[in-house]
Amino acid sequence: MSIVSAESAAAVAARAAVAEEETAAPLAPRAHLLPALAAVYRAQLSRARVARIPLLFVATFQSVGIMVLMRGVVDGGTEARAVVAGASVLVVAFVALNLLAQYFGQLRAGGGLDHYATLPVPPAAVVLGAAAAYASFTVPGTVVTAVAGSVLFQLPLTHLWVLAAVIPLSGAALAGLGAALGLLAPRQELATLCGQLGMSAALLLGVLPADRLPGPVSYARDLLPSTYGVEAMARTFDAHPDWAAVGLDLAVCGAVGVVSLAVATWAYRRAAVR
């Protein structure tokens, strides 16, 4: 008896829903993923002109400064490669991780997410568009740092084209992490703090040569996604790089990027509708 009535109740509800659909006004189309992503990307990129250029300058200046500093400590060889690669990826960490975490923290605290949440746009478009724009911001600084470092430490420039893979992949990993931190942090200050800490970790664990780090710290180094970008780049300073190892390192970056951007998208949904 109860089963029958439950079924009929469900049927009534379904019929009511169908009737509602029939009388309801047509919905405006929703924005598709790629056009929306492109629109968000373009808008975010334009913000650079207004707000980001001084910070991009700071990011580059910081990395070049660190290399100059390390020149007194490191005398060529593997260590020099680690320093140049670490300093280059640090630019990515500064912008994609730190600044993006701050941006999303600020957007969430200031009610800015409501703007996106009241538009028919896929969450992934907002997160990926912003992450891609922040990863793009890092390109000039990373290239300048890599070239300046290579010259400074007399490393070959031959394989620097690998930056074309290192920047987007470590950018994806770090921007995803930054976006997730910014959207998950319960308060704006915590988002800023997390971003800063993440960048400090990338600085210390990336720039300092791995074999000089104490045991437990080197495990932390293995956990940080930027490490794999640093290692991939450092390997390419060899005359005959081990491309398989480079590819593996970059694959780790890519995988972390996919996971962290998925987490960030989930965090965005969660933050947008409360």
Partner: peptide, 28 residues
């Protein structure tokens, strides 16, 4: 629904033209 909230944080750093255009793009 077209919604105008009280906050403009998401659009603050865009130009007026790009804010309007981007919002339209995101409206499909």
């Amino acid at each position: 629904i077209g919604y105008l909230g009280q906050e403009s944080t998401a659009l603050d750093e865009l130009t007026v033209a790009l804010a309007a255009e981007t919002t339209g793009r995101l409206r499909g």
